[in-house]
Design a protein around this nucleic acid. Structure first.
Lengths: 237, 237
DNA sequence: CGTGTCATTTTGTGATCACAAAATTGCGGC
DNA sequence: GCCGCAATTTTGTGATCACAAAATGACACG
């Protein structure tokens, strides 16, 4: 009675009858979950992440998790060590320096490219997001702050319709976000400064150089706080 | 005759006794094969690539192929369409413009960063590669040319020890290489010009601005040929 | 009490399977 | 002869399995 290949529904987990349609729905869900977790700092640098662990946590089989982890490793959001284990890479001064440089090269460029596509409605949305950011800073909600800050920047960048630069910038954010979170957890959010209002004004006036300057300044301001911390926390250099 | 879960060797394919050791050896093999295939233009833009097809072609199970395809899709070297099919993305004027811009932003930067690490031995290697490139141009061997051109650039970039910028540039090359190949197949290699010799001289003299200029010029030269073609071959714009 | 070694458990990997959606083919009707 | 619909094949997806390597824990020995 080898009854093993009979009556295999193959979807005992979670999705009961919710997602009968779209192709690769489970993977998309898993991908979104982990990505958002990385961007809001729910994954700690250096912490190992196991396939089976994540799978059972998300209520799916290990299979989609495997693929998503590979994807994220390809984007350098995760690191596969020589033994196959996957972990959130921890920040080094060199890495930090490179991420900062790359952001300064790419993000102002893409912002400028998006400038002509940004509508009055976008300005309104950005203003709302920035207001929420301000309240997060005072309330000290680091996780919400990170999510909103990401939303602010990528609402601008996404307007460019970019297919090349945007994924590159995405990869960069995934790389520094987890480290960012640990810093905010340590020093709080009250010291945060940004140049979002300058950016909004530049968009309103369709002033490309001013927008570039605002984005550059925002990056420098935001990463400045992180840069000081990283030197403190890497004793062995 | 239920005997299904007994005597499963689980490795009937290819690796007989060659790779009993390293973790994830098969995946690495598959990854290298497909990557190299993309960089030398053995995959044609627009052409669909199937998991099972590649798997049987490489003599492995679909599993490692799936993961590698996901990786490459994450690097934008491949495109997953809404129905799940994977194909080599074809070039559009917008994409081309973005890749060019991104290359010009990132590659000179990384070249300069690598400058201080490049030894006399590296210069020797680069000279050898460039000589081979010259002979490929006259002999018209596009595939070898592409492989050597990649080797030339990345021999420089790799010296930087970069962990962030290098993967970004890697992604960019994977994106335009397949298109590049189709152009060379159409117009030949005789029209190719590069600024490799200027780059080598700049490295010899540790002249950062000159190296940046050489890399920038080389990118502009190399992509210039492609740029003219893409406008011709996208009638629908 | 510390350390090296062995057994156990965890974990990644590759393979195979069953199913659904998509693509392809074949056939009938107009 | 051409178009639309149904049957068939192809293909991606998620699940489960078996195995090996690595990590972990237990235990004996010094």
């Amino acid at each position: 009675m080898a009854a093993r290949n009979s009556e295999r529904t193959n979807r005992p987990a979670g999705n009961g009858a919710a997602t009968p349609t779209t192709r690769g729905a489970t993977r998309g869900q898993v991908d979104a979950a982990i990505r958002s977790g990385l961007l809001t700092g729910r994954f700690i640098p250096g912490k190992a992440v196991t396939i089976r662990g994540l799978a059972s946590e998300l209520g799916v089989s290990p299979m989609p998790v495997r693929e998503v982890l590979q994807r994220l490793a390809a984007e350098n959001a995760l690191e596969v060590k020589s033994n196959g284990r996957v972990q959130v890479p921890d920040m080094t001064p060199e890495r930090f320096d490179e991420v900062l440089k790359a952001r300064l090269l790419l993000e102002p460029e893409l912002a400028e490219r998006a400038l002509r596509s940004l509508t009055r409605q976008d300005i309104k949305t950005l203003t709302v997001i920035d207001d929420e950011i301000d309240s997060c800073i005072v309330s000290g909600d680091a996780e919400a702050y990170m999510q909103l800050n990401h939303a602010f920047h990528f609402h601008i960048y996404a307007a460019s319709g970019s297919q090349v630069l945007l994924p590159l910038i995405d990869s960069l954010w995934l790389q520094f976000a987890p480290f960012m979170r640990t810093v905010y957890g340590r020093v709080g959010t009250v010291n945060l400064v940004d140049q979002h209002k300058e950016a909004i004004r530049a968009i309103e006036q369709t002033d490309a150089p001013a927008l570039r300057a605002a984005i550059s300044g925002d990056i420098t301001d935001g990463m400045g706080l992180l840069g000081k911390e990283i030197l403190k926390n890497t004793p062995g250099g």
